[in-house]
């Protein structure tokens, strides 16, 4: 197994990336002293530690091989996460009555077993009505029923 294809290598890469980001963003916070720690002290220690753990993991990936990264399924990830983003982006403009069923169908398409059918449409509509009744009417979540596009 080539090192750069192992789980350990990529997990280490994630740690190093997170650690470096935390280090670079946190560079400006004052460190203070050990007795009077500034806002930057703990973040610097932690980001250093995370980079270190990441490097060890990368080294382990190269040295002892281990399992390869399994296939990342792009389509379901894009559709499911995309559905939440779509909902976030359109809720104000379209309103929950439109954005919610659209997001539902979009998420459902992530499944290989899902087919757009009258039954599925009906289900999405029924679930939307249920959510609007429970969350918007019942619990008072201030979510527009119909968005700005429809004058809501």
């Amino acid at each position: 197994m080539q090192g750069y294809r192992t789980k350990d290598f990529w997990a280490g890469a994630v740690y190093v990336a997170l650690g470096l980001t935390a280090f670079l963003l946190g560079k400006g916070y004052s460190l203070g002293s050990a007795a009077r720690m500034g806002p930057g002290y703990f973040p610097m220690v932690l980001s250093g530690l995370l980079v270190l753990i990441g490097l060890i993991s990368i080294a382990r990936g190269f040295l002892s091989g281990g399992e390869a990264v399994p296939r990342i399924h792009i389509r379901p990830a894009v559709l499911v996460i995309g559905a939440t983003f779509f909902f976030a982006a359109t809720i104000e403009l379209l309103g929950a009555a439109i954005a919610l069923p659209a997001a539902l169908i979009m998420a459902a398409m992530a499944s290989r077993l899902f087919r757009i059918s009258p039954f599925a449409m009906l289900g999405a509509a029924a679930f939307t009505i249920f959510c609007l009744a429970v969350f918007v009417k019942g619990l008072g979540v201030p979510m527009p029923m119909f968005g700005a596009l429809f004058g809501g």
Binding site: I81, A107, S111, L113, C131, M143
Partner: peptide, 30 residues
């Protein structure tokens, strides 16, 4: 499961929206 999980996604999205009544949390959750 393929009828179930879209509903879970929707519940999660509405749930985090209701924390502060803004869409920021939905993006972050994604």
């Amino acid at each position: 499961y393929h009828y179930l999980f879209p509903c879970i996604v929707a519940f999660c999205a509405i749930g985090v929206f209701s924390l502060a009544n803004q869409t920021f949390e939905i993006w972050l959750m994604g």
